[in-house]
Structure formats: C-alpha cells, structure tokens
C-alpha cells in the first residue's frame, strides 16, 4: 500500500534497508489492525450506513428555536477560553525563560524541571485536565478555566522558549556591553526581540482554546458543552445539530479573528 519508488542513485544496501523498513511498517500495520479489531463486532460496522442514515434523518432539521438558550453558554465558553488563555500565558512566561538554554539560571537543575512541566502540560489534553479538575473542585466554569490554563502552559512556553533561543545574540551582547544589569538586558535586549512571537503565540493559543472550550462541558466543566452533553443524554438530536452549528460558527469566527490579528502583528 505505501510504496516508494526505487531511486537509482541509492546503493543496493540502502535499498534493502529501505525495503525492510517499509515491509516492517506494513507488517506492524497488519498486526495492529488485527489486535485493534479483535473485539469489533462487524455486524455493527456493516450496519453503519443504515445507522448513519437513521441518525441523519433524526438530526435534521436542527432545532433553530434552541438557539435562544445557547447565548449564555456561548458567552461562558468565550470566557473560559479567554480567561484560561490569560492564566496559561501568565504562568508560561516565567517557565519559558527558565527553559530557554540562553536565559535559564541552571542548565542542570532548573531547565529539566521546566522542560518536564512543559511536556506534562502538552501531553495531557484539556479535556483530561477538565475531567480531573471537575472531580477535584467540582463542576463549573472554574474547572474549565483552570483546565484550559494548564493545557496552555506547555504550548505557549514551548513556542516561547524556542523564540527566546532564536534571539540574535549580538543585540544582547551590545546591551550587555553598556554595563546593563541582568533585568535590563532582559528588558532591552531579549523582550523586544520576542514580543511579536509572544503576541502571535498567545492569539494562536486563544483560537485553539475557543475550539477546545466548546467541548469541556461534556465532562461538566462549563460552557456550551454542558448543553451538548444534556442533549446527547436525552437523544435530542435536533438540538445536538443546533449546537454543532453554533460551535462550527464560533470556531470559524475565532479562526478568522486570530488570523487577522496575527497578520496585523507580523
């Protein structure tokens, strides 16, 4: 299935390695496929087109009148995303400076800790953070905001520390040569260089967070997802469709806003 043309300029040895590699991938795929589908009930899968048709007929038309009940949850969703982004960014900035190899106070102790915080935050989806937080501090907007914040830390800090590491050394050297203190070097030499990246990253993450906060309600962390969960539980498919439409519209608009803002900054 995945084939690659044989390049004449490759040596025969490299050729063999390449073919063995692809063969291994195919074998692995087949093996994984069998493991994954061993409990799959194929009758259900075969039945899927009928299910889909049935679902489709129940989902349309959307229940437009339900829109009136969605404005407040939508406002909550925006607030979760924006406040969560704010929280995440505030925590991410110091972590980024601790993680960047040219600004970290200690490569041996502080940097690995900062990098671990970043990877831990990035590995865990905001929905999982929300699941945990709902179980810890109870359902509501606060759990959603903190979940979005925790997930944003890693994303923002990672991109920001990469930007810090890419700053031009000579500009920093010039500020150092004037006899500036460490804080002044940061303020005059490094911050101006990373500021556009910082705004860009924050707006980008805000856009992603709008998208993610629409579903946090599935686990009780507030926003429009709460209505989605309720409608799914009662099998009120026309309402589900209406919610999907609203989510889609919000996502498209926030993506447009974020692209505009980022374009204006850069």
């Amino acid at each position: 299935m995945m084939t690659t043309p044989v390049w004449q300029h490759r040596t025969s040895r490299a050729n063999i390695v390449l073919w063995v590699g692809w063969l291994f991938l195919v074998a692995l795929f087949v093996f994984c496929w069998q493991v994954m589908t061993k409990d799959t009930i194929w009758a259900f899968v075969a039945d899927a087109p009928e299910q889909a048709a049935d679902l489709g007929s129940r989902m349309f038309p959307p229940r437009w009148s339900y829109l009136d009940k969605l404005w407040v949850p939508l406002w909550d969703t925006m607030n979760i995303a924006t406040l969560g982004t704010l929280l995440g960014v505030i925590i991410a900035v110091p972590i980024a400076f601790l993680a960047a190899s040219n600004t970290t106070p200690s490569t041996l102790f502080v940097r690995p800790v900062a990098l671990f915080i970043i990877v831990a935050s990035r590995s865990i989806n905001s929905l999982i953070w929300a699941l945990l937080l709902v179980s810890i501090i109870g359902p509501g907007l606060l759990a959603g905001i903190v979940a979005i914040g925790l997930r944003s830390i890693g994303f923002v800090a990672k991109l920001l520390y990469e930007a810090i590491e890419e700053t031009e050394k000579i500009q920093i050297e010039a500020v150092t040569a004037t006899g500036a203190s460490g804080a002044q070097i940061l303020n005059y030499g490094i911050v101006p260089q990373i500021l556009p990246a910082f705004y860009g990253i924050s707006v980008f993450r805000w856009d992603i967070n709008i998208r993610e906060s629409t579903i946090l309600g599935l686990v009780g962390a507030g926003g429009i997802g709460v209505q989605l969960q309720a409608s799914l539980n009662t099998l009120a498919w026309p309402q589900v469709t209406m919610i999907f439409v609203v989510i889609l519209g919000t996502v498209v608009i926030s993506e447009w806003v974020s692209a505009k803002v980022r374009h204006a900054i850069i």
């Binding site: 799959t40 009930i41 899927a48 299910q51 679902l55 993610e212 579903i215």
Partner: peptide, 21 residues
Amino acid sequence: RSLQEIIIAILFVAMFGFGPF
C-alpha cells in the same frame, strides 16, 4: 478540520458502536 475529534467521535460511536473501531 472544522470538526473536532471529540465531535466526530460522538457521531462515529453513534454509527459504529462503542470501541476502538
């Protein structure tokens, strides 16, 4: 791209039943 994984998953679970498929 505009539909998130979770929403697609909800629909696919409704069509194909629970499970990794």
